[in-house]
C-alpha cells in the first residue's frame, strides 16, 4: 500500500532537564493537506516543529517527514521541506531578485532554473516594478507573499509556515491563503504553526496543543461542533480554560 502520509509522528517527546516540552505526541498529516498546529505560547509547538524540520533531536519517539526519519535523516528532510517564519523570512537588505537567487542557490538550483523561477515568481506576484528594490522597503503583505514563494522555490514536498499572516491586512491575508490553497491543490503539504485562531479556520485539520500534549485534533468544523463553539477562538478558550 502506498504511503499517503507526508508526516507521521508517533509518541514524539522532548525533554529539557526535568521539563517535558513535548509529551508523547502522535499524529499524521496527509499529503496535500493544510494542517494547523495550534497552541498558546509555551505549549510546545515550536519545540515540536523544530524536531520535525530536523534542527532539534527528539528525546524519544518516532517521526518521519517526507518519508525520512527525524533521528537519522535530518539532512534529507531539510532538502525536502520549505520553511517560512514571520520572524525571519527574507533578507531586508537584499533586493527581491537577490533574495530569490540566494535562496535558490542554497537549495542547489541551477542558475538557469533560478532565472526561470525568479522570472515566473516576479510575474505571478506582480513584483515586476520592484524587482530591484530592497525587500525591506516592501509592504509587509508583499514580503509575506514573496517569502512564501521563496520557501516553495525548490518544490518541497512539505512547507512549514510559522504564523504566516499575523498583522497582515485582511485582503492580502486572503491572497496569501489562496496561494496556500493553490499549493495544496498541487499536492504540497502545508504545516501551519500558529496561535492566531483565525488562521486555524483556514486549515483542513487542526491540532491544539496544551502543555506539551495534543488535546484535540479534527477539522475546524467538527471541533466547533464538538465544543459547541461558533469560532475556533471559542474552541481554544474552552479547551485552555478546561
Amino acid at each position: 500500500m502506498k504511503n499517503e502520509n507526508a508526516i507521521t509522528v508517533s509518541e514524539l517527546t522532548k525533554t529539557f532537564g526535568t521539563f517535558t516540552a513535548v509529551n508523547a505526541i502522535s499524529f499524521e498529516v496527509k499529503k496535500g493537506e493544510i494542517f494547523g498546529f495550534l497552541g498558546a505560547n509555551g505549549a510546545g509547538k515550536t519545540t515540536a516543529m523544530k524536531m520535525l524540520i530536523g534542527i532539534l533531536k527528539p528525546s524519544s519517539g518516532q517521526a518521519t517527514v517526507a518519508g525520512f526519519d527525524v533521528h537519522t535523516e535530518s539532512e534529507a528532510i531539510k532538502r525536502n521541506i520549505g520553511y517560512m517564519s514571520q520572524k525571519f523570512a527574507l533578507y531586508d537588505d537584499l533586493t527581491v531578485r537577490e533574495n530569490i537567487t540566494f535562496f535558490g542557490g542554497i537549495y542547489g538550483l541551477s542558475r538557469k532554473r533560478i532565472q526561470e523561477k525568479s522570472k515566473q515568481l516576479i510575474e505571478d506576484l506582480g513584483l515586476g516594478a520592484v524587482g530591484k528594490s530592497l525587500v525591506g522597503s516592501l509592504p509587509l503583505g508583499w514580503k509575506q507573499k514573496l517569502a512564501f514563494s521563496v520557501a516553495m522555490l525548490h518544490d518541497p514536498q512539505i512547507v512549514f509556515l510559522d504564523e504566516p499572516t499575523g498583522g497582515v491586512d485582511p485582503i492580502t491575508r486572503r491572497q496569501f491563503w489562496e496561494m496556500i490553497y493553490k499549493a495544496a491543490h498541487a499536492g504540497t503539504t502545508l504545516f501551519v504553526t500558529t496561535h492566531y485562531m483565525d488562521e486555524a479556520e483556514y486549515c483542513n485539520r487542526v491540532s491544539i496543543m496544551v502543555n506539551g500534549k495534543i488535546e484535540a485534533l479534527d477539522t475546524p468544523k467538527n471541533l466547533k461542533q464538538h465544543f459547541e463553539a461558533a469560532t475556533m477562538n471559542d474552541v481554544f478558550l474552552k479547551l485552555a480554560r478546561g
Binding site: E178, Y181, H185, K221
Partner: peptide, 24 residues
Amino acid sequence: HDMYLLIETLKAYPHRHSVYPFGE
C-alpha cells in the same frame, strides 16, 4: 468540497463582486 477550485470558479463567475476565503 475543494477550496481552491471553489475560489477559482467563483472568480470566473461573471457576476461576482467580491470573493474572499473566510475560514472553511
